[in-house]
Simulated assay, not measured.
Amino acid sequence: MLRPVELEVRHLRALCAIADTGSVHKAARQLGMTQPSLTTQLRRIEQAVGGQLFTRERTGSRPTPLGRTVLTRARPIVAQMTELIREAKEAAGLGWSGPGARLRLGSTGSRAVPGWLRRLHRRLPDTDITFQTDVSANTLLRMVACNQLDAAFVHEVEGAPLRVPEGVELRVLVGREPQFVAVPESHPAARAGRAVAVPELAGETWMVDPSVDGDWDGLRQVFAAAGIDPRVVYGDYLSAGDLVAAGEVVTPCQPTSRPRPGMAVVPLAGDPLGVRLLVGFRGGAGLTPEGDAVFADLRAAYEEVAWSSPAYARWLTARRGLPVVA
């Protein structure tokens, strides 16, 4: 069952877009969303207000009497918020679209980043888009707070919350992404094409990168819950793949990780290790149409790499879909 949501400006903007275009499909395109995501969001909004807001007809979507009442109040709020953000950005010398505009992005490592940048370059051809990576999500969020970045795509490991600076707002891209494990291709789980239980890996040497915020803390909790105390070595995830392929170590990895010769990416049985995928914006920026577009392009890029990753695609298919937050 969908849980009620507190209405936000982005929800009101979505209602206005559906009313203006007369179609959920057209509104989703205007907002840079997928139609299923907007449909899910509309159902949550209707649950929050307690009634149906639009009727589906052959000619499109039309507001119900309740919908017209809500739209009467929503339109001035959306207009005022848009004007407020525009004036604030002008005062701060900010702007993400048009000639001379700039957009500064950061991210912890993710295969979704190239597709994200490709979509943004296509959407904002006149914008100077710069990008940088850092293994520390907390560092990237501090850079957003200090106006060194406009947005940062980061992950938060379960049991190891990020330190979110004042003035930074977070939007949740994926509420829980399971973390998989990279094992040698010769490992029984890799040959059988199945999920591997953590105790099966008790005799392996695990490699973890201690500079990645939360990774070691989260993994240590998984070991404790499984009642194992394996050997752990420290290193960086860039070199871990070669060591996995050589049969020297196993290492936790993102489910979208690309296998290489000699290495396989397999799920952990029971999904004991998970992360939240988040986008950090400076306060207010994530509520603008441009902020929505930046978020929507990242979501589309993530969906693309998720479904193109064989092990993750099988995991998603078994669970009937991608756990992306609308």
Rank of each mutant, 00 (worst) to 15 (best):
A245T: 01
F281E: 02
F281S: 00
V212T: 15
G286A: 01
A296I: 01
A264E: 09
D215T: 06
D217A: 14
A225N: 04
A224I: 00
L268M: 08
P289E: 01
A224V: 00
G262I: 02
C253I: 06
W206T: 04
G270P: 04
L219Y: 09
D217L: 11
G286M: 02
D292K: 03
V279E: 15
P252L: 06
V208A: 15
G280H: 08
A246V: 10
V212W: 15
M207C: 12
L268K: 01
T256F: 03
G284V: 01
R282W: 08
L278A: 05
L268S: 08
L268G: 07
D217S: 12
W206R: 03
F223N: 07
E204K: 06
P259C: 06
P272E: 06
L278H: 12
M207N: 14
D297F: 00
G227N: 10
T288M: 00
Q254I: 00
A269D: 10
D271A: 13
A293Q: 12
G286N: 02
D215L: 15
G214W: 07
W206L: 08
Y237R: 04
V212K: 11
A285G: 04
E204T: 03
V249D: 14
L273E: 02
P272T: 00
L273A: 02
Y234M: 11
A296G: 13
V244F: 08
A202K: 01
V222C: 13
P252S: 05
T288Q: 00
L219T: 04
D229E: 11
L219I: 08
G241P: 03
D215H: 11
